[in-house]
Each structure stands twice: as C-alpha cells, then as structure tokens.
C-alpha cells in the first residue's frame, strides 16, 4: 500500500511538472478535456498542432514505458454498456463544466480558483455517490 502512495506522489509530481511546462512555456492550462474537446468540436482549430503534440505524447509515453516496466492492469469493466454511458457522461460533463481532473483539479485548485475547487467538490461527490450506489448497493460495477 505505502509503495502505491509513494508512486502516486512521484507520478503526481511528474503530472504537475507537465502542467508547469505547459503553463510557463506555452501559456496554457493543461486540462485534458479542454485539449481534446477543442479538437473534437473545432473550437481549438488555431492551436490544433500543439494540442495534437500534447495528446500524442500522453498516448506514446505509456506505450513506450509498458514493455520496460511491465503492463499496468487497468481493471476496466468488460461491460461495454457501462463503458459507453460513462464515456458519454465524461465527454458531456467535462465540456459543460469546461474542465476535468487535470484542468479544474490540478491546475485550478493550485491557483485557488473557486471554480476549480467547486467543480472538484462536485465531481468527487457525484463520483462517490455513483460508486456507492452502483458498487456497494446494486453491485453492478
């Protein structure tokens, strides 16, 4: 268990360093949903190249690291209905809220943004209630 916490802290430092690089060099907030969403709905057309560069690296680094350090078991459910509903909710929700765990959570809270703090409280509460209902009560996830 404590090993997971140390790796969590180490990984968190890397994530935060990535956010710091994106902010200090490119002047942009490292929010995954905003970076993806701007490409999907065309609102980020002017900055498409840096968005694609960012996402390519997010995809490629774990791909390169897995053979070296062993595959991470993702424990993703095999229920495709649940996966599809979850994906739709994450897509719609993050775009309505204009941010997700990285944008509102990491980048927002670290600048004491009220929006970031409130968003994080709501998505953690909603996530906690969802897991309580579907795992602890209904036992379907």
């Amino acid at each position: 268990m404590p090993m997971d916490w140390i790796l969590g802290l180490l990984g968190g430092l890397l994530i935060g360093t990535g956010g710091a690089v994106y902010l200090l060099f490119n002047g942009r907030i490292m929010g995954a949903s905003g970076i993806i969403g701007g490409l999907v709905d065309g609102s980020g057309r002017d900055t498409a190249a840096e968005r694609i560069s960012f996402l390519a690296a997010v995809f490629l680094l774990p791909l390169v690291l897995t053979p070296l350090f062993g595959r991470v078991d993702t424990h993703l459910t095999s229920n495709f209905v649940v996966i599809a509903i979850a994906g739709l909710l994450v897509g719609v929700g993050t775009r309505f809220a204009n941010g997700c765990t990285s944008g509102h959570g990491v980048c927002g809270i670290s600048r004491l943004s009220l929006r970031g703090i409130v968003a994080t409280v709501f998505y953690i509460l909603a996530g906690g209630l969802t897991v309580a209902l579907f795992r602890e009560i209904l036992g379907v996830i």
Partner: peptide, 26 residues
C-alpha cells in the same frame, strides 16, 4: 454549467474509473 457538468462528469468517472487524461494515456 459548472455544477451540472461536474456532476455528470463525476458520475461517468465513478462508473468506469476513467477521466480524459488517463483514458488517452491507457
């Protein structure tokens, strides 16, 4: 939109355990 969106996002996040960054990384 912030409250509604964050609530919907949290529900999806809880259902699958994935948010946008890790979905691309994995």
């Amino acid at each position: 939109n912030l409250i509604l969106g964050s609530t919907l996002f949290g529900m999806g996040w809880g259902l699958a355990g994935l948010c946008p960054g890790p979905a691309i990384a994995s």
